[in-house]
Design a protein around this nucleic acid. Structure first.
Lengths: 199, 199
DNA sequence: TCTGCTATTAAAACCAGGTCCTAATTAAGT
DNA sequence: ACTTAATTAGGACCTGGTTTTAATAGCAGA
């Protein structure tokens, strides 16, 4: 009663499916030289779902990632705002903002908080980021609360310079210099609008 | 002969399937109050494949584009990826990405696409943005498809320089220079030094 | 040798979620 | 009334399975 062949086959089966989840049982019979029933018994024992189920799982995984883009309007809660002068916002790093492996926040969330604040602090109908020079000073981790402080350094007619520093506690974790376009009475930009909504 | 209902239904059908690709024809008959045959004719006319085919496509997309990477950590769909060399991703600006009044994309979404891609293209266990110098060249509007192209310019042991250019059609809308930290232990990567441009 | 056990294979019924084809029905336009 | 487009209905067939029930092969121990 060769037991080994079975275990070996199980290993091979797992490997084959892992490296090509699109394989059908019929294809597996060819590769492993056993009947299709054996393949199915094996999958049953190993808890490997059928092809369609596998594809569905993969599709789901890749779907809710697209769906769960949590980058909406203003990122973070605005705590204080003095238009054209300064602003403070608070943003807590949660599970959806991190690299799952490391627990470290993805840079664009930290950026998003700062960018949102830089735009919000500009007192204009339309304010858009033109450019930015940013530095991620240290990593931010799950659960940490980021306090971003924005200061308007200079405000011309069509551009404003805004500096943003983000802290976790005492520590600075991010800094950025933003150049923000403003509408300054409808010029330069084709589509002029009202100011962005605020919560 | 109300032609409108048909077109409207087609629109609704497309919308329904787009916002939930996991829906079956049977479910669609309930929502649209027409027979299942009509649904199938509609799908045929619109060139929308059956449920299983849709799931398979989604699975494929998420599989062979970035099998090694956790996809959900990337903003936009990776179209091409040559680790440590270059990468391309596609990101369509949708309603949730814009200033609702103006239809102009919020900067941090455009940044997020570029940042994700810059991190993804670095072949390392841990890759984090250290700093970035970015410019929003022109506004991006609702419905526009942003194609971001990333090129690894130099890859040292602990840092890599990545340039990202984002286009809508022929037009460049964003450019950024990223410095990415890498873990520099795990993989002894000493292969890449300086790379020339490539399309 | 017979019994018992595992592993394998086979066969048949059934299912979801369709395609493909033919035909009937309905609605509406002129 | 006749024509045409749109809709609905029905049945055969397909893939890639599940589930169940049975038969068969191979070997071990008493």
């Amino acid at each position: 009663m060769e037991r080994l062949p079975k275990r070996q086959r199980h290993q091979q089966l797992s490997r084959l499916i892992e490296e090509n989840p699109f394989i059908t049982d019929r294809e597996l019979t060819r590769q492993l030289k056993v009947s299709i029933q054996t393949i199915r018994l094996d999958r049953l024992e190993l808890g490997i779902p059928e092809l369609r189920e596998r594809l569905k799982l993969m599709a789901e995984r890749s779907y809710d990632s697209v769906r769960s883009l949590p980058l909406h309007e203003v990122i973070g809660d605005i705590v204080d705002l003095q238009l054209d002068k300064s602003g403070i916002s608070m943003f807590e790093i949660r599970g959806e903002h991190i690299f799952s492996r490391t627990g470290i926040a993805r840079g664009h969330h930290v950026f998003a908080q700062a960018n949102s604040l830089a735009v919000a602090v500009i007192n204009d109908e339309i304010a858009l980021t033109a450019s930015a020079d940013i530095r991620f000073v240290r990593q931010v981790k799950l659960g940490e609360k980021c306090i971003a402080k924005a200061y308007v350094r200079s405000a011309g007619r069509s551009k404003a310079k805004v500096e943003v520093f983000t802290y976790v506690g005492e520590e600075m974790v991010f800094q950025g210099h933003f150049i923000i376009y403003r509408s300054a009475g409808e010029h330069g930009i084709e589509e002029v609008d009202e100011r962005a909504d605020r919560d």
